[in-house]
Design a protein around this nucleic acid. Structure first.
Length: 415
DNA sequence: AGTCCACAGGAAGGGCAGGCGA
DNA sequence: TCGCCTGCCCTTCCTGTGGACT
């Protein structure tokens, strides 16, 4: 027994020793993450200039317009905004101008920034106030927030990233209240920068919110394959050791990401994960084979992550959708196979009864299906079947060769 | 043209847990 | 301790709807 333990220790120690000794492919892995803000942001010079000009008056204590930034994911919206605000704050400190503070909130963060109360506590905490996570009336929080800004000596810039998610969750009352607070402030000001990838989002807003919130717009166009390659080349130089990666591999990552609406985040992920896979396999050079493996791993990880975070009822609903989709023995291509809400619900009831789970109503299951759609794991479309009623067609968006793995993963959670 | 189906999805509210402040 | 507040998950009730069928 003791001998077995010792052999385990020595094998693990060996892995660590080899890792330390071996020259890996990474020089600075951080440079390959999407949260890394480089000192030189490529192909976004115009947008950065535009944004800087819009918020520069804050340095002299003037009120500036609220700004809306549009662009698909991975087009550099967040990175450019954070870059400009970092520069703005340091300019303010360096030249001792009107003091400024910026707060960045990703509205997609569940349990952090998805309700009015949570957002206000987040703002207050950033401003140094101690507020409980629950318990206080919302109007008390608004008052504290107002007092803090009015009686403090800093103006505030709030970046609301993925603002469309916030709107879908809590409506536009919160945004309206923020703009109202701003009109009542005398000494300091708030500027709101809303970031979204939904170009039509603004149309949904109440007219009074739209007029005050979206005074200036900036649109970030998707990167093309050449621009993506430039970005990846620059990041690779920082991120990988010399000779670990060649131009062909970078081109492949750029081309794959360009197919997905020029998503730089995806391109960087591919590069980083390909590097990790190469390292794990003991290869000192990253090849196109590693990129292929990285592509599959990223997609699978995303699905696992979504599944893991879903409540059990939602997992059962997804499991039923997969089972019903697989059950179709027609000649249709996988992407054309679809199931209907009613069929999913019938299957759901059966599974709940078999597993002694509480059976939720059709109304609730319908909402769970909608949530899965929003997560991008399924696609839905409302259709009419004439006198046989109206329902929802549900398509799986999971890659066909990942279905089995996803199903097994769900089974391990449910049963 | 009217009927009818099978839901979609909005609104309201119940019930529970967690937390605050007097 | 108790009243009040919030978030969260859920149900109930209801109206709306597109198009096949009569």
């Amino acid at each position: 027994m003791e001998q077995l333990l010792n052999s385990n220790i020595s094998s693990v120690q060996n892995i660590f020793y080899n890792y330390i000794q071996k020259q890996g492919v990474f020089k600075d892995k951080n440079a390959l993450t999407s949260s890394f803000i480089p000192s030189n942001i490529q192909h976004r010079e115009n947008e950065i200039k535009q944004l800087s000009l819009m918020i520069a008056p804050m340095l002299k204590g003037f009120q500036t317009s609220n700004i809306f930034i549009y662009g698909k994911c991975g087009t550099g919206k967040t990175m450019s905004s954070r870059f400009v605000l970092n520069q703005l704050e340091s300019a303010s400190k360096e030249h001792k101008t009107h003091p400024l503070k910026s707060i960045y909130v990703n509205c997609k963060m569940k349990k952090v920034a998805d309700t009015e109360y949570r957002l206000l506590t987040q703002f207050l905490k950033e401003l140094g106030e101690n507020v409980p996570d629950t318990g206080l009336p919302t109007d008390v929080l608004y008052r504290r927030f107002f007092d803090r800004i009015e009686n403090g000596n800093t103006s505030l810039i709030i970046i609301l990233d993925e603002i469309d998610t916030l709107y879908r969750k809590i409506g536009d009352e919160f945004l309206y209240n923020l703009t109202r607070i701003n009109t009542e402030l005398k000494k300091n000001h708030i500027t709101i920068i809303g970031i979204t990838n939904d170009i039509s989002f603004k149309d949904n807003l109440d007219a009074r919110v739209r007029s005050s919130l979206s005074e200036e717009d900036i649109i970030f166009k998707p990167y093309d394959a050449i621009q993506l390659k430039d970005i990846l080349m620059m990041r690779s130089t920082k991120g990988f050791v010399d000779g670990a990666i060649n131009e062909d591999v970078i081109s492949k990552c750029a081309a794959l990401a360009a197919q997905e609406h020029g998503d730089a985040r995806r391109a960087l992920d591919l590069l980083k994960v390909a590097g990790e896979i190469a390292e794990r396999l003991g290869d000192s050079i990253i090849t196109e084979k590693h990129v292929d493996m990285a592509e599959e791993k990223i997609d699978m990880d995303r699905i696992y992550e979504i599944i893991k975070l879903q409540p059990k009822q939602s997992q059962i609903v997804l499991y039923c959708i997969i089972k019903m989709t697989k059950r179709q023995n027609d000649n249709k291509k996988w992407v054309d196979k679809r199931v209907l809400t009613g069929d999913v619900f019938d299957e759901y009831v059966k599974i709940c009864n078999n597993t002694n789970m509480k059976v939720l109503t059709l109304r609730r299951v319908s909402d769970l299906i909608k949530e899965l759609d929003m997560l991008g794991i399924i696609d839905t479309r409302v259709i009419s079947k004439g006198r046989y009623g109206r329902t929802k067609e549900i398509f799986l968006t999971i890659n066909e060769n990942m279905i089995e793995k996803t199903e097994k993963q769900l089974e391990s959670h449910i049963f």
